[in-house]
Simulated assay, not measured.
Amino acid sequence: MNTIIITDSTCDLTLEYVQENADMLDIIGMPVNIEGYEYFDDFGKTLSHDEFYSKLRLGIMPSTAQINTFRFSEIFKKHYQKGKSIIYIGFTSGMSGTFNNAVMAAEELIKEHPDADITVIDTLSASIGQGVLVVEAVDMLRNGKSKEEIVRWVEDNKLKSNHWFAVDDLNFLKKGGRISAATAVVGTALNIKPILTVDNSGKLVSYTNVRGRKKSIRFLAEKFHEHIRNCSVTTVIIGHGDCLEDAYMLKEYILEECMPKKLIVSQLSATIASHVGPNMIAVAFVGDDREVK
């Protein structure tokens, strides 16, 4: 059987990357609701990134929902009927029930069709940290690796997917319940920029606070250089919340000391950006084991 890799829109890859690899990669969009309008996140095709971020900057707070079992069943059936073996590389179970819905849909399809070959992987990763695992898996598939080899690599390396995020607008963390209103007010007054990461249970956690935007971007680069291994054979993704100039600044800091195999600069799509707001800047890569405080 030929293999297809499926992931969800929380991977925050670029639309160009998804389209260029459509022969090996399929995406299922997370539901996003903004001002009463619900759509499936499709990397800016339905609602452009420009329009979406304009709404965020006006203070509009979108909401997101899980991908339900019906939609997983539909995409799994589609590829089963094409004779495909399926690898679903999913959004962390530490932040959403989406992964459990994928498990149930896969079990239902296998019960109905025992010859169905479906593997679902909880990446314990999010956003571009999930994205780097997907990119490496697609590269392996394109280079002729078997489904078993790809699954083994993702499972062996998912806790080496390093995520480092610098948040600019504290009000979105406040609205999402991650910090108190008082903390947001004081932090904004002091120009505090929280640094977030993802722990081994796949949850978004606070790591430290840095004062000033440029210092926070430099901090991300320092964490990259501290934790990267074998840079020349590694994919690096820089994610940004509609702040391309800052993303290029981070790119320059990264390239000061090493040249990755592949470096992708990606604008965060609606799902993740709904929770962290505009101007978030992030870097993700497969390096050494995640730093746990």
Rank of each mutant, 00 (worst) to 15 (best):
H240D: 08
F99W: 12
Y53V: 08
D8A: 06
D12Y: 02
M140R: 15
A247Y: 05
G277Q: 05
K160Y: 13
R229T: 13
Q130N: 12
A182V: 09
M95A: 00
I34V: 12
S48C: 11
F91Y: 13
K111T: 13
A106M: 07
V138H: 13
Q267A: 00
D12W: 04
A22H: 09
V236A: 11
N100L: 00
D246N: 08
N143R: 15
G177L: 04
I238N: 12
I67P: 00
I4G: 06
T69M: 09
R57H: 05
S269M: 01
Q130F: 06
K160A: 05
N279Q: 10
R57C: 05
A247E: 05
T208N: 00
R218F: 06
V198R: 02
T188G: 15
L133R: 12
G94V: 01
E256D: 14
N68F: 02
K45M: 07
I121D: 07
M140W: 13
D139T: 13
H275Q: 06
K82R: 11
V236G: 12
E245D: 15
A273D: 04
S125N: 15
N200T: 07
D26M: 02
Y207M: 01
S201P: 00
V134R: 12
D289A: 04
A181I: 06
E245A: 14
N157M: 12
L124V: 03
Y80T: 08
T123L: 07
K82A: 13
E20R: 15
S274D: 04
K145D: 14
D23R: 10
I281M: 06
E51M: 09
S125C: 14
A181G: 11
E256V: 01
R178I: 02
H163G: 01
D246K: 02
D289Q: 06
R71N: 13
W153G: 06
R290L: 13
T235V: 14
A116G: 12
E256Y: 04
L141I: 14
Q81R: 11
I118T: 11
I75C: 09
R213I: 04
V276C: 08
